[in-house]
Design a protein around this nucleic acid. Sequence first.
DNA 1: ACCATCGTACGACCGCCATCGAACATCCCG
DNA 2: CGGGATGTTCGATGGCGGTCGTACGATGGT
Lengths: 116, 116
Amino acid sequence: MARPRAAARTVDHPELSEVSLQQILEALVDPVRRGVVSQLAGSGEDKSCGTFDAPVSASTLTHHFNVLREAGVIRQYYVGTTKMNALRADEMEGRFPGLLSSVLAASAAEGEGAAT
Amino acid sequence: MARPRAAARTVDHPELSEVSLQQILEALVDPVRRGVVSQLAGSGEDKSCGTFDAPVSASTLTHHFNVLREAGVIRQYYVGTTKMNALRADEMEGRFPGLLSSVLAASAAEGEGAAT
DNA sequence: ACCATCGTACGACCGCCATCGAACATCCCG
DNA sequence: CGGGATGTTCGATGGCGGTCGTACGATGGT
Protein backbone atom coordinates (compact mmCIF):
# COMPACT_ATOMS: atom_id res chain seq x y z
CA MET A 1 0.00 0.00 0.00
CA ALA A 2 2.91 2.33 0.44
CA ARG A 3 1.13 4.51 2.89
CA PRO A 4 2.29 8.15 3.00
CA ARG A 5 3.08 7.68 6.65
CA ALA A 6 3.58 11.36 7.43
CA ALA A 7 7.28 10.89 6.91
CA ALA A 8 7.79 9.53 10.39
CA ARG A 9 8.01 11.89 13.32
CA THR A 10 9.46 15.19 12.41
CA VAL A 11 11.19 17.77 14.54
CA ASP A 12 11.47 21.41 13.74
CA HIS A 13 14.41 23.64 14.28
CA PRO A 14 14.89 27.38 14.46
CA GLU A 15 16.95 29.24 11.92
CA LEU A 16 20.19 30.21 13.52
CA SER A 17 19.47 33.78 12.57
CA GLU A 18 16.48 33.64 14.86
CA VAL A 19 18.19 32.51 18.01
CA SER A 20 19.57 35.02 20.44
CA LEU A 21 22.92 35.03 22.14
CA GLN A 22 21.00 34.80 25.36
CA GLN A 23 19.38 31.55 24.32
CA ILE A 24 22.66 30.02 23.29
CA LEU A 25 24.46 31.03 26.45
CA GLU A 26 21.62 29.72 28.55
CA ALA A 27 21.85 26.47 26.66
CA LEU A 28 25.58 26.17 27.17
CA VAL A 29 25.71 27.22 30.79
CA ASP A 30 24.25 23.98 32.08
CA PRO A 31 26.98 21.43 32.78
CA VAL A 32 24.85 18.51 31.63
CA ARG A 33 24.08 20.18 28.33
CA ARG A 34 27.68 21.20 27.90
CA GLY A 35 28.62 17.59 28.49
CA VAL A 36 26.23 16.52 25.77
CA VAL A 37 27.66 19.05 23.35
CA SER A 38 31.21 18.04 24.21
CA GLN A 39 30.47 14.39 23.64
CA LEU A 40 28.83 15.23 20.37
CA ALA A 41 31.77 17.30 19.22
CA GLY A 42 34.25 14.76 20.50
CA SER A 43 32.72 11.82 18.71
CA GLY A 44 32.67 13.61 15.41
CA GLU A 45 29.50 11.78 14.48
CA ASP A 46 25.82 12.03 15.18
CA LYS A 47 24.79 10.21 18.31
CA SER A 48 21.47 8.81 19.42
CA CYS A 49 19.98 10.14 22.64
CA GLY A 50 20.63 6.94 24.51
CA THR A 51 24.35 6.93 23.88
CA PHE A 52 25.17 9.94 26.00
CA ASP A 53 26.81 9.75 29.33
CA ALA A 54 24.96 12.03 31.72
CA PRO A 55 24.18 11.96 35.44
CA VAL A 56 20.48 12.56 35.06
CA SER A 57 17.34 10.59 34.32
CA ALA A 58 16.11 9.96 30.80
CA SER A 59 13.26 12.40 31.08
CA THR A 60 15.57 15.14 32.25
CA LEU A 61 17.88 14.39 29.39
CA THR A 62 14.99 14.81 26.98
CA HIS A 63 14.44 18.23 28.46
CA HIS A 64 18.08 19.15 27.87
CA PHE A 65 17.93 18.01 24.28
CA ASN A 66 14.90 20.22 23.77
CA VAL A 67 16.71 23.21 25.15
CA LEU A 68 19.72 22.59 22.96
CA ARG A 69 17.56 22.13 19.89
CA GLU A 70 15.53 25.26 20.52
CA ALA A 71 18.73 27.20 20.97
CA GLY A 72 19.90 25.99 17.59
CA VAL A 73 22.85 24.13 19.01
CA ILE A 74 21.83 20.69 17.84
CA ARG A 75 19.74 19.20 15.10
CA GLN A 76 17.59 16.16 15.78
CA TYR A 77 16.04 13.59 13.52
CA TYR A 78 14.46 10.23 13.93
CA VAL A 79 15.91 7.03 12.61
CA GLY A 80 13.37 4.38 13.36
CA THR A 81 12.78 4.44 17.07
CA THR A 82 15.95 6.20 17.94
CA LYS A 83 16.54 9.91 17.76
CA MET A 84 19.81 11.19 16.43
CA ASN A 85 21.58 14.35 17.45
CA ALA A 86 23.90 16.43 15.33
CA LEU A 87 25.89 19.49 16.30
CA ARG A 88 25.09 22.56 14.21
CA ALA A 89 28.67 23.70 14.52
CA ASP A 90 29.06 25.34 11.14
CA GLU A 91 25.85 27.28 11.44
CA MET A 92 26.76 28.38 14.93
CA GLU A 93 30.10 29.52 13.66
CA GLY A 94 28.35 31.64 11.09
CA ARG A 95 26.02 33.17 13.59
CA PHE A 96 28.43 33.81 16.45
CA PRO A 97 31.98 33.19 15.27
CA GLY A 98 34.23 31.52 17.76
CA LEU A 99 31.60 31.13 20.43
CA LEU A 100 30.88 27.44 20.33
CA SER A 101 34.44 26.51 19.51
CA SER A 102 35.91 28.48 22.38
CA VAL A 103 33.44 26.98 24.81
CA LEU A 104 34.24 23.52 23.52
CA ALA A 105 37.94 24.17 23.78
CA ALA A 106 37.49 25.48 27.30
CA SER A 107 35.45 22.43 28.24
CA ALA A 108 38.08 20.14 26.86
CA ALA A 109 40.83 22.06 28.61
CA GLU A 110 39.08 21.47 31.89
CA GLY A 111 38.54 17.84 31.18
CA GLU A 112 34.79 17.82 31.10
CA GLY A 113 33.17 14.65 29.83
CA ALA A 114 34.27 14.51 26.25
CA ALA A 115 35.27 10.89 26.40
CA THR A 116 34.40 8.50 23.62
CA MET B 1 49.06 59.66 64.54
CA ALA B 2 49.12 58.45 60.97
CA ARG B 3 47.10 55.39 61.64
CA PRO B 4 47.93 52.37 59.46
CA ARG B 5 44.48 52.72 58.00
CA ALA B 6 44.41 49.25 56.44
CA ALA B 7 45.40 50.75 53.13
CA ALA B 8 41.89 51.86 52.34
CA ARG B 9 39.32 49.26 51.51
CA THR B 10 40.81 46.36 49.68
CA VAL B 11 39.20 43.83 47.44
CA ASP B 12 40.54 40.40 46.70
CA HIS B 13 40.44 38.58 43.46
CA PRO B 14 40.81 34.96 42.46
CA GLU B 15 43.65 33.80 40.30
CA LEU B 16 42.29 33.10 36.88
CA SER B 17 43.74 29.62 37.13
CA GLU B 18 41.35 29.01 40.00
CA VAL B 19 38.13 29.94 38.32
CA SER B 20 36.13 27.33 36.49
CA LEU B 21 34.53 27.57 33.10
CA GLN B 22 31.25 27.06 34.87
CA GLN B 23 31.77 30.17 36.98
CA ILE B 24 32.66 32.29 34.00
CA LEU B 25 29.73 31.12 31.94
CA GLU B 26 27.38 31.71 34.84
CA ALA B 27 28.80 35.19 35.13
CA LEU B 28 28.36 35.92 31.46
CA VAL B 29 24.93 34.42 31.03
CA ASP B 30 23.15 37.21 32.84
CA PRO B 31 22.16 40.01 30.47
CA VAL B 32 22.83 42.73 33.01
CA ARG B 33 26.30 41.44 33.71
CA ARG B 34 26.98 41.01 30.03
CA GLY B 35 25.91 44.60 29.56
CA VAL B 36 28.39 45.68 32.18
CA VAL B 37 31.18 43.74 30.55
CA SER B 38 30.29 45.10 27.14
CA GLN B 39 30.31 48.66 28.38
CA LEU B 40 33.62 48.07 30.05
CA ALA B 41 35.13 46.59 26.92
CA GLY B 42 33.58 49.25 24.75
CA SER B 43 34.90 52.17 26.74
CA GLY B 44 38.44 50.87 26.72
CA GLU B 45 38.99 52.35 30.15
CA ASP B 46 38.22 51.48 33.72
CA LYS B 47 34.84 52.69 34.85
CA SER B 48 33.44 53.42 38.27
CA CYS B 49 30.39 51.48 39.40
CA GLY B 50 28.11 54.44 39.09
CA THR B 51 28.86 55.07 35.45
CA PHE B 52 27.20 51.96 34.14
CA ASP B 53 23.92 51.91 32.38
CA ALA B 54 21.84 49.09 33.78
CA PRO B 55 18.12 48.53 34.38
CA VAL B 56 18.47 47.47 37.99
CA SER B 57 18.84 49.06 41.38
CA ALA B 58 22.20 49.98 42.84
CA SER B 59 22.17 47.14 45.33
CA THR B 60 21.48 44.63 42.61
CA LEU B 61 24.28 46.08 40.58
CA THR B 62 26.64 45.60 43.50
CA HIS B 63 25.65 41.96 43.49
CA HIS B 64 26.46 41.66 39.80
CA PHE B 65 29.85 43.24 40.27
CA ASN B 66 30.59 40.72 42.99
CA VAL B 67 29.70 37.84 40.73
CA LEU B 68 31.86 39.19 37.95
CA ARG B 69 34.77 39.77 40.29
CA GLU B 70 34.54 36.31 41.84
CA ALA B 71 34.46 34.81 38.38
CA GLY B 72 37.66 36.61 37.55
CA VAL B 73 36.07 38.66 34.82
CA ILE B 74 36.71 42.06 36.35
CA ARG B 75 39.16 43.58 38.78
CA GLN B 76 37.98 46.17 41.26
CA TYR B 77 39.81 48.78 43.28
CA TYR B 78 38.86 51.79 45.29
CA VAL B 79 39.72 55.31 44.35
CA GLY B 80 38.52 57.42 47.19
CA THR B 81 34.85 56.76 47.58
CA THR B 82 34.35 55.38 44.14
CA LYS B 83 35.06 51.85 43.09
CA MET B 84 36.68 51.27 39.75
CA ASN B 85 36.18 48.29 37.49
CA ALA B 86 38.63 46.86 35.02
CA LEU B 87 38.18 44.04 32.58
CA ARG B 88 40.65 41.21 33.05
CA ALA B 89 40.61 40.54 29.35
CA ASP B 90 44.20 39.44 28.88
CA GLU B 91 44.11 37.04 31.77
CA MET B 92 40.81 35.62 30.55
CA GLU B 93 42.32 35.15 27.17
CA GLY B 94 45.13 33.18 28.72
CA ARG B 95 42.81 30.98 30.69
CA PHE B 96 40.14 30.33 28.08
CA PRO B 97 41.31 31.59 24.72
CA GLY B 98 38.66 33.21 22.61
CA LEU B 99 35.90 32.87 25.13
CA LEU B 100 35.45 36.39 26.35
CA SER B 101 36.24 37.92 23.01
CA SER B 102 33.70 35.79 21.15
CA VAL B 103 31.02 36.59 23.68
CA LEU B 104 31.83 40.27 23.42
CA ALA B 105 31.76 40.11 19.66
CA ALA B 106 28.45 38.30 19.76
CA SER B 107 27.01 40.87 22.13
CA ALA B 108 28.14 43.68 19.92
CA ALA B 109 26.75 41.94 16.86
CA GLU B 110 23.37 41.80 18.52
CA GLY B 111 23.54 45.39 19.57
CA GLU B 112 23.54 44.92 23.29
CA GLY B 113 24.37 47.92 25.38
CA ALA B 114 27.94 48.70 24.46
CA ALA B 115 27.28 52.37 23.95
CA THR B 116 29.62 55.11 25.18
C1' DA C 1 0.26 -10.06 17.17
C1' DC C 2 3.01 -9.22 20.76
C1' DC C 3 6.76 -7.42 23.25
C1' DA C 4 10.91 -4.93 24.12
C1' DT C 5 13.20 -0.64 23.22
C1' DC C 6 13.49 4.18 22.84
C1' DG C 7 12.09 8.41 23.81
C1' DT C 8 8.21 11.88 25.29
C1' DA C 9 4.61 14.25 28.08
C1' DC C 10 3.01 15.64 32.26
C1' DG C 11 2.75 17.21 36.86
C1' DA C 12 5.12 18.06 41.10
C1' DC C 13 8.82 19.60 43.77
C1' DC C 14 12.69 22.24 45.24
C1' DG C 15 16.47 25.15 45.34
C1' DC C 16 18.71 28.91 43.59
C1' DC C 17 19.30 33.52 42.00
C1' DA C 18 17.97 38.13 40.52
C1' DT C 19 15.67 41.73 42.51
C1' DC C 20 14.34 45.30 45.72
C1' DG C 21 14.24 48.82 49.67
C1' DA C 22 16.03 50.46 53.73
C1' DA C 23 19.64 51.12 56.76
C1' DC C 24 24.51 51.59 57.12
C1' DA C 25 29.56 52.53 56.09
C1' DT C 26 33.25 55.15 54.00
C1' DC C 27 35.18 58.89 52.03
C1' DC C 28 35.80 63.68 50.09
C1' DC C 29 34.76 68.50 50.46
C1' DG C 30 33.72 72.82 52.41
C1' DC D 1 32.70 68.85 61.85
C1' DG D 2 28.55 68.27 58.96
C1' DG D 3 26.72 66.88 54.49
C1' DG D 4 26.48 64.70 50.25
C1' DA D 5 27.98 61.11 47.28
C1' DT D 6 29.13 56.40 46.47
C1' DG D 7 28.56 51.67 47.39
C1' DT D 8 27.49 47.83 50.59
C1' DT D 9 24.85 44.76 53.60
C1' DC D 10 20.87 42.58 55.00
C1' DG D 11 16.62 40.14 54.82
C1' DA D 12 12.62 39.14 52.13
C1' DT D 13 10.45 37.85 48.04
C1' DG D 14 9.26 35.84 43.63
C1' DG D 15 9.91 33.28 39.64
C1' DC D 16 12.26 30.25 36.76
C1' DG D 17 14.60 26.03 35.69
C1' DG D 18 16.53 21.40 36.65
C1' DT D 19 15.07 17.20 38.51
C1' DC D 20 12.34 13.10 39.05
C1' DG D 21 8.84 9.22 38.39
C1' DT D 22 5.19 7.49 36.11
C1' DA D 23 2.36 6.82 32.36
C1' DC D 24 2.17 6.96 27.54
C1' DG D 25 3.36 6.69 22.28
C1' DA D 26 5.87 5.03 18.45
C1' DT D 27 8.76 1.68 16.16
C1' DG D 28 10.97 -2.57 14.85
C1' DG D 29 11.87 -7.39 15.55
C1' DT D 30 10.38 -12.07 16.43
